[in-house]
């Protein structure tokens, strides 16, 4: 609102007023012009309003009552009315005899009363028109509000669906964050205890190896997965980064602060839960076994390749 630029000594007030009006139009969000709203109110109220609540035939009804009122026209009563006649002589005589008439009674209160009554009739007629205008304007405003409510509802729906989408996306990202470190433990379909124990041993060994190698290669993970890695280290395996080269870890953090902060926000808050979940619940981790047992020749998803690739150097 304060962005009227005063660039010279000459202020064009009309220009400023045009800016103010355009701003008002922007604020209102003119999806419909005044004429369109009037048209909607007149013709298709029932589309926006409860038809039992507001009548959409106000105009027709008003015209009908106005026609009835016109059949009983108001009379005008002025101070000269009682003397009026088309005969000049009679009018003259009446005025001449007026003082005598006043000897019998005072006609002024009568004239005043009838004049006031006539005036009241005229006012009442005008008021009726105002009432119609008022109701009509109310209907217009109700229509406008109905439209606005509808628009707002649509906006809310749109925003909630976007929010829903963002939440799902966040969860998916969390899943990815959790996925790589979690590539370790879980969870093979049981193929025998010996194999299990052997594989588990290998997995354990591989995991340790991998951690060490990762520690030695601070710049690795150019795909941006490093950030998630780091986070998961911090969250899940806190002791290990400290055992690694502090410089490298710091460098890795410093290299991608933004990715870090982004993932940090998500991972920092949400990561513990998936971790704990992975320990107790194998549900979300079905692809993970493929990562470690990738060596077994199973299908390796592309993202997983980067991790073993870095491991394999």
């Amino acid at each position: 609102m304060t962005d009227f630029q005063i660039r010279s000594d000459n202020v064009d007030v009309e220009q400023i007023m045009r800016q103010i009006r355009s701003r008002i139009r922007e604020k209102r969000g003119v999806d419909y012009t005044e004429e369109e709203i009037k048209e909607l109110a007149r013709v298709k109220l029932e589309k926006f309003l409860d038809p039992t609540g507001v009548r959409s035939d106000l105009l027709v009804e008003y015209r009908r009552t106005k026609g009835e009122a016109a059949s009983n026209p108001n009379y005008k009563f002025e101070d000269t009315t009682i003397f009026e006649t088309h005969r000049g002589f009679v009018r003259f005589m009446r005025k001449l005899l007026y003082p005598i008439l006043k000897l019998f009674f005072n006609p002024h209160p009568l004239i005043d009363a009838l004049h006031i009554q006539s005036d009241l009739n005229a006012r009442s007629f005008k008021r009726e028109e105002l009432q119609y205008e008022l109701i009509h304007n109310l209907v217009l405003e109700t229509t406008r509000l109905g439209i606005q409510v509808k628009n707002l509802r649509m906006q809310v729906e749109s925003m909630s669906s976007r929010l829903d989408f963002d939440e799902r996306r966040a969860r998916a990202l969390e899943g990815v964050v959790q996925y790589r470190p979690g590539a370790v433990p879980p969870l093979q379909p049981p193929q025998g205890v010996a194999r299990d124990s052997r594989e588990e041993g290998q997995a354990q060994e591989g995991r340790t190896r991998r951690r060490r190698r990762r520690g030695r290669r601070p710049g690795s993970g150019p795909e941006g997965t490093n950030g998630s890695f780091g986070e998961s280290h911090q969250d899940g395996e806190r002791g290990e980064p400290s055992s690694e080269s502090g410089d490298a870890a710091g460098q890795a953090r410093g290299d991608r602060p933004r990715a870090r902060s982004t993932s940090g926000e998500g991972g920092g808050q949400v990561a513990p839960t998936p971790h704990s979940g992975s320990a107790s619940d194998a549900g979300p981790v079905p692809p993970k076994p493929h990562s470690v047992p990738g060596r077994e020749g199973g299908p390796v998803p592309p993202k997983l390749q980067s991790v073993p690739g870095s491991e394999g150097g």
Binding site: M1, I6, I16, M17, R23, I24, K27
Partner: peptide, 29 residues
């Protein structure tokens, strides 16, 4: 070039706020 005007509430509020908050505009007017 020394004043603004209004014909509706919206214009009243916008113009009043503009005069209130926009120092250069207020000063120049």
């Amino acid at each position: 070039g020394a004043g603004l005007y209004y014909e509706s509430y919206e214009e009243f509020a916008e113009a009043l706020f503009a005069l209130e908050s926009n120092g250069p505009l207020h000063g120049r007017l």
